[in-house]
C-alpha cells in the first residue's frame, strides 16, 4: 500500500491543481467549501463534477446537470471491469471501497505497474486511491475556500503532464502488433 501511496504523489499534486480550479468554479455556483468537499468525497469523479457544476451554473437544472456528469463517467464501467482480476482476492468491503477511490490516474498507474510486475495489485490500487481521494477532496475544498488569490497552475502546462503520463502508461501496456489497429482507431476517433 505504501508503494501506491508514494507512486501516485506526482499525479496527486497535478490533480490538486485542477481540484483547486474546480473549487473556485463550484464556489461561484453557490457551493460552500464544505459542500465542495462533500461532493468531491462522495462523487470522486473530477471531470464529471466539473461538467455537472458548469451545467448547473448555466441553467440551474439539477437533472440535466446530473445526467451530463454521469454520462461522462460511463467509462468507469470499463475501467472498473478491468480491475476484476486485481480485486478478486480481497474482501467485499475492500472491493466496495477500492472502486470508489479509483480514479483515472491510480487505475492507469496500477495497471501499468501490474503489467510490469504482477505482484502489484489491490494494495497498490487502494494506497494510491486513498492519496488521490485525499488530494482531490482537500484541493477542491481549498479552492472554494481560498479562491481567487492563487496563480492559475494549469496555464503553466500542468495539464500536459497528465497527457505525458498516460502516453507512458500506454507504452507500458503495449502488448505487440495486434494493438496497432484498435489503438489507431481509438486515437483517430477520439481526436477528430
Amino acid at each position: 500500500m505504501k508503494q501506491g501511496f508514494y507512486g501516485i504523489l506526482p499525479f496527486a499534486l497535478g490533480a490538486a491543481a485542477y481540484g483547486f480550479a474546480f473549487g473556485i468554479l463550484a464556489a461561484q455556483s453557490g457551493y460552500p467549501w464544505w459542500g465542495v468537499a462533500l461532493m468531491s468525497f462522495s462523487v470522486h469523479a473530477g471531470s464529471s463534477q466539473i461538467v455537472a457544476v458548469e451545467r448547473f451554473g448555466m441553467d440551474g437544472l439539477v437533472i440535466g446537470a446530473a445526467l451530463a456528469g454521469i454520462a461522462l463517467n460511463l467509462r468507469y464501467l470499463g475501467i472498473i471491469a478491468t480491475l476484476s482480476a486485481i480485486l478478486k482476492d480481497i474482501p467485499l468491503w475492500q472491493k466496495l471501497v477500492a472502486i470508489h477511490i479509483t480514479g483515472d490516474e491510480n487505475w492507469a498507474l496500477t495497471m501499468a505497474r501490474h503489467a510490469q510486475d504482477p505482484k502489484i495489485g489491490a494494495a497498490f490500487l487502494i494506497g494510491s486511491g486513498l492519496t488521490l481521494m485525499t488530494s482531490w477532496t482537500t484541493s477542491t475544498a481549498l479552492g472554494a475556500l481560498l479562491g481567487q488569490s492563487m496563480p492559475d497552475l494549469a496555464s503553466y502546462g500542468l495539464g500536459f503532464a497528465f497527457t505525458a503520463a498516460f502516453i507512458a502508461m500506454a507504452r507500458a501496456m503495449w502488448r505487440g502488433r495486434h494493438n496497432i489497429a484498435p489503438w489507431a482507431v481509438i486515437l483517430w476517433q477520439q481526436s477528430c
Partner: peptide, 13 residues
C-alpha cells in the same frame, strides 16, 4: 481493454 482506454484518454486530451 486497459490499453485501449488509456489511448482514448490520451486522444481525448
Amino acid at each position: 481493454l486497459p490499453g485501449c482506454l488509456i489511448v482514448a484518454l490520451v486522444a481525448t486530451s
